[in-house]
Write a protein that binds this DNA or RNA. Structure first.
Lengths: 192, 192, 192, 192
DNA sequence: GATGAATGAGACTTCATTCAT
DNA sequence: TATGAATGAAGTCTCATTCAT
């Protein structure tokens, strides 16, 4: 029951926003009464916390597997992290929307739990970039911090426009993006 | 007066969100009464529309100047568009936040006005990419559409984390980003 | 079990009031579930009735023993009734609080049972005063009805402020009060 | 308007208790809407605070006039304070009820304002008793603290039963009570 | 004897908005 | 140009209670 409600709520939050979704909306969408909602959840924020928790935990877990895999080059690691992000956004679009847009409505207390995890994810990307620079896979003297944000922005922004059922599937999209990130878009001239 | 109120409201919307900001908040922040608010604005959405309008109009205007400037290469045009975006986000952070996060709360009618302008901005980037490809500035066979989103994501995402007073100024940030977009981050081997 | 719950509930009602105490509060304080509460009690009022019943029954019983004891003067009877009251308030403070403050929340039907008993207690005091007047123990021409209320007020009010562990024990307090009631506080002059 | 509402609310609180009175009850009794209530009052507690404030302030003010009047003996002062109390309870019965029964529902913060005033009133009575003892008006070695509570209890209890339109008016009631307090009820024997 | 899922009414409160002045 | 009294719908949440197990 709780699971079923969570799914519905994620969809509602995704479509109408956290504040734009009333308890009334929630219980109507689930065919239950208000009492039932408050039987399963402490309050509306409680649901928001659950969504954030499981979204970022899922991401961190996936990321962890990638960065601790010693068989992978840093190049490949970066590739897979971007793939992970895009895949996640495609599969859990509404969760992603909530995650990126509704952080504001977490209480200070809950933010203190979620925010560090978000930062962890970014720092892990930064670390991959740094390792790759050391290993000679990436150019020296890059700003790993800024670039990690660029990578994140590029991937995350896809929740705004990416149509999972469109002509470009997620693997292709990842490839496209990684091509740009690795090789750039400029036509290579032969004067070097 | 209206201008003064607009500024305060943008800040409030930026900090607390559109739905999170009550008329009460607005009039208190301005030291006026509710009547005054409704003297100057039709309703709350009215303000939101103003913010969206002027933000996107300002961007489109800037973009227009860049793309119609025949002295510029497409490379340079892209560079300047990114600079425009980052500059705008830095200078009008709250407006940017509202623009990117509160579109949902526009009525259908108003969305019909704003949304095409947003798309216009993206399409203009796409067009620069396409022209650049034709002109041999960019690699052939790039997906101009997807890449335009990548560029937008990268730039826009900066409103989440970019600290205007931090160690990296906006020109450097633009350079960093353009370096990656143009040349990529991979260490060039000499086997080509 | 029922007894154990009653004790907890009395304390809760005393501290937070009848309406201020929720079934949730009750079952939490007892480490049981709501179902359990309704297994033992018909509803919340049911508990309130029990509390009132046993409090007033206990008082009336004690009072009965005193007033039917033919060895006692009316003076002594009054003394013992006041002692009974103060002792009861000291020992069952929370019950007393509930008894004096939460009568309002009894249904009409239940009020019809409890109220006459309360009045009985007051009338019994009144009767002792009247008997004492007839017997020449008390001054003639007193208003026994009004004075019975005075005695009740004085004694009952102690539930507001009396600290059982304070420097004055209940016997001393009774003595103090009876001294005032019997002899008054005015300095006796010898001009009579 | 606010005044009019206050009066109605006092009556409602008096009859049904603070928690037993809903905002719905209040606005219905006043023929206005809920919005109107919240236009005039911050919340329900706000009204309760007002009631407490004005009740105790009124009492303290009256008491102040009495105890600072140097023409009065302490005997007379005590008499007048009791009269003040009984008069107040008679005239503002509902306020008195609220004052004595609904203190619990004040927030800690507001209690911190009201409670000291209540204690002030009691201490002022105590002081009159002490002064009277020093002046030889009252017996030596009385417990002024305990007796002040007795006097308060006696007078305050009248809100439970005193019928303003009954056969005993407030002056007579005060006299009755003062007679008891001053002279006691015991028949004086001539063996002293 | 005891549970816990579910209810639905109703609690307090906030809100955007109107309108006579 | 600005006010402030008034609205009523809708918001979040709590509550006493029931009932199948």
């Amino acid at each position: 029951m709780k699971e079923k409600m969570m799914d519905t709520i994620i969809e509602l939050f995704g479509k109408k926003g956290f504040q734009g979704t009333s308890i009334q909306d929630i219980v109507e969408a689930n065919g239950v009464t208000k009492g039932t909602f408050y039987y399963y959840f402490k309050n509306k924020e409680d649901v928001l916390v659950h969504i954030h928790q499981s979204f970022i935990d899922h991401l961190l877990e996936g990321q962890e597997k990638i960065i601790t895999n010693e068989d992978l080059s840093n190049c490949e690691k970066l590739n897979r992290i971007v793939e992970l992000l895009i895949h996640n956004i495609r599969t859990n679009g509404h969760s992603a929307l909530v995650f990126f847009q509704e952080m504001r409505h977490l209480s200070e207390e809950k933010t203190a739990i979620i925010l560090p995890k978000r930062q962890q994810f970014q720092e892990n990307i930064q670390k991959v970039l740094e390792e790759g620079m050391k290993a000679g896979e990436f150019k020296k003297d890059l700003r790993a911090d800024m670039l990690s944000y660029a990578v994140l922005g590029m991937a995350n922004w896809s929740y705004f426009w990416y149509e999972p059922d469109g002509e470009v599937n997620e693997e292709s999209l990842t490839d496209l993006y990684m091509q740009m990130i690795f090789k750039g878009i400029e036509e290579e001239t032969n004067d070097h």
